[in-house]
Amino acid sequence: MNSRKTELLVGAFVAMAIAAALMLAIHVANQGMESNGETYRLYAKFDNIGGLKERSAVKVGGVTIGRVDSIRLDPSDFTPVVEMTISKQYMEFPETSSVAVLTSGLLGEQYIGFTPGFSFDGIENLQDGDYIEDTKSALVLEDLIGQFLFGRDSE
């Protein structure tokens, strides 16, 4: 009977669904799959994180090396603390590295720009759980405008 045809069509249907899932995995959500590897944690304190969010990217020269895992306020001095998970592939950053909250494009998403520092003798590499001391806060447009105006007044 035509049960063979039914089976074939159902098989084709399942194959289509698998193809769709593969396409979503490879072309649409590539990033998520990769970041499932091993990671380590770094912390950084900022004065102002601007529009940074959880899952924002951490980039070195445009290459994503990790993501923001959580953002909280340090209860002792009321400054934001950002917890980042960095891929274990990128282990050897010196302690003198710095991070800054940057914006991609004029109105794009905010991300953390990570600048590796120079390594001298006696400077160790960053380890799991370390704080990065050298941080630059997000640029807040209102502050900038304010500075510009006050700066002109005082001239």
């Binding site: 979503l24 995995a25 072309h27 649409v28 959500a29 590539n30 990033q31 998520g32 799959m33 990217a57």
Partner: peptide, 15 residues
């Protein structure tokens, strides 16, 4: 179109 999509969409969270 593809690369920003890839950077934003996460397998576990979204798919």
């Amino acid at each position: 179109y593809w690369s920003i999509m890839q950077a934003t969409v996460e397998w576990n969270e979204d798919v």
